[in-house]
Amino acid sequence: MARKGRGLGRFLLRYVLTVLAAVVALMFFLPFFWMVSSAFRPAEEIFAFLSPLSPYALIPKTLTLENFAQLFGGRLGRNVFNSVLITVLTVTIGLVICSAAAFALSVLRFPFRSAVFAVVVVSFLIPFDAIAIPLADTFRTLGLQNTYAGLVLPAIGDGLAIFVLRQFFMGIPQEMKEAARVDGAGWWTIFWRIYAPLSKPALIGAGLILFLGQWQAYLWPLLIITEPSMQVAPVALSQFVGQYEFNFGALFAGATVVSLIPAVILLSLQPYFVRSVSSQGLKE
């Protein structure tokens, strides 16, 4: 950042900073590594090698896939499927309805536009978990308990996703819309053929918001799902702890599966997410 280095002093500072970064990063990485490595070792080895502590506590002595076999042989395979299915549904439906609303709020002119936008902002200031308890009662009376619809519906309308998309749409020049209108294009065509293709970064950002909201959900599935085969993977895994068939090997295998899916998605799309939420999203 600064000008030229001052020889030894600079070199030492860089050395110290590198060591510091490596030590902190490895400390954060260690529990993750332990989770993944425990998934690939025989269950009885997970808590072996602890007294006295040996390197084998972290590094598997024998590699095996038996934990994954056990996991997918049991109910948890179904739970992982549930998680993937409801997340795909949430992101797809959510993106369509949120970007349509964002399009209306940024491009179309209609009465009470700012009042409608205020409702969107208020809705994302109320954290979903805080209203999950009364909403769960309503869903139960409507018979949405133990259904995919019950898991997907509350997640598709997301105020933050609408907000992020609206900010992006506002940056697209009005001339494009006007030219298309002159050519006789309908609003849906303008939205679908002009705005949506131009807004890839914002759509990815909003998609990740919807994805994380659903994949990270814990309280809502816990409240609305009582039938074990309908449960999502994270909640099913936590309920699996303490059951008679429980073993730590399968727990770590399940944890690895449900963590690696978002890890891959987040790491490949992370720049879009950060840009759209922190920079675009907060500019007024």
């Binding site: 900073l17 970064a21 902190v24 989770m35 994270p234 909640v235 936590s238 944890a255």
Partner: peptide, 29 residues
């Protein structure tokens, strides 16, 4: 800062977030 492997260290720090909120307490437990 300009330090070796900065991107790798960032990745290591970010990874814990990908573990779902219901799961990371189980690992720590």
């Amino acid at each position: 800062q300009k330090i070796p492997l900065a991107r790798a260290w960032r990745l290591f720090l970010f990874l814990p977030f990908s573990v779902p909120l219901g799961i990371s307490p189980l690992i720590w437990g």
